[in-house]
Amino acid sequence: MTISMSLVLRTATRLIMPLLLVFSVYMLLRGHDKPGGGFIAGLMAGTAFALYAVAYGTEAMARLLRLDPHTLIGGGLLITLLGGVPALFLGEAFLTGLWWTFYIGEVAVKLSTVLIFDIGVYLVVLGVASTVVLVLAEET
């Protein structure tokens, strides 16, 4: 797939892409309480990269992604599994959520194995989406 000739698309992508990525991370982190979550955020990030591929070509997209999508998929799956393991040490069932809350000043920060799990989901979805985009868009 050749680089898009549309100046509008390329300029807009350059502006929108970082916003989409940041927003996807925001969606990931707030997901437990408000609309969002790993799956949605992963799709969003995947769409952002797909947009970049349409505007600048797959090679540029692969460079921007840095990691091989296959690594993302494998790593993501591993992280989801790791998110389930700590509960085993406490004698709970696999994938039971564990929470730690601590305060930075007035702000309560909630960390959990559930978040680890969700980050894994995010990476897997992003990896799958970019694999498909890369494979389909690549010149043969």
Binding site: G31, H32, D33, P35, G36, G37, V114, V121
Partner: peptide, 11 residues
């Protein structure tokens, strides 16, 4: 500890 039921179900 989550208010978004959809996400709580998922994760």
């Amino acid at each position: 500890f989550g208010r978004n039921i959809v996400n709580v179900i998922l994760v």
